[in-house]
């Protein structure tokens, strides 16, 4: 399966959207658009957030679902939160 690239394979800088296409009529829009915050996360982080939303934000349910302990899920969430912070706010 193709993975949605979020960082440049050459210099690891975060990628931006340059071209958008309408699948139905073929219209193309070109420009420089930054990736939405969630889309800029890794596929693993995005999957984690999806599960988190599906469990109504219950860390306890997430822990049962992932078969790990509560603090493990809490720490994983802390990592995602840190990645969502602007670089200036990161520790």
């Amino acid at each position: 399966m193709k993975r949605f690239p979020v960082t440049c394979p050459s210099c690891e800088q975060q990628l931006q959207v340059k071209r958008l296409t309408c699948d139905r009529c073929g219209t193309e829009v070109e420009g420089i658009y930054p990736l939405p915050q969630l889309a800029a996360l890794s596929a693993e982080d995005q999957a984690f957030i999806c599960e988190f939303v599906k469990t109504s934000g219950s860390l306890k349910e997430m822990a049962a679902l992932l078969k790990v302990s509560y603090p493990t899920v809490r720490n994983r969430l802390d990592e995602v939160i840190a990645r969502l912070q602007p670089p200036s706010a990161q520790p």
Binding site: K67, V68, S69, Y70, P71, T72
Partner: peptide, 10 residues
């Protein structure tokens, strides 16, 4: 072990 076990069970 705390990766998997914590809380009341532990």
């Amino acid at each position: 072990p705390f990766h998997r076990i914590a809380g009341g069970g532990a």
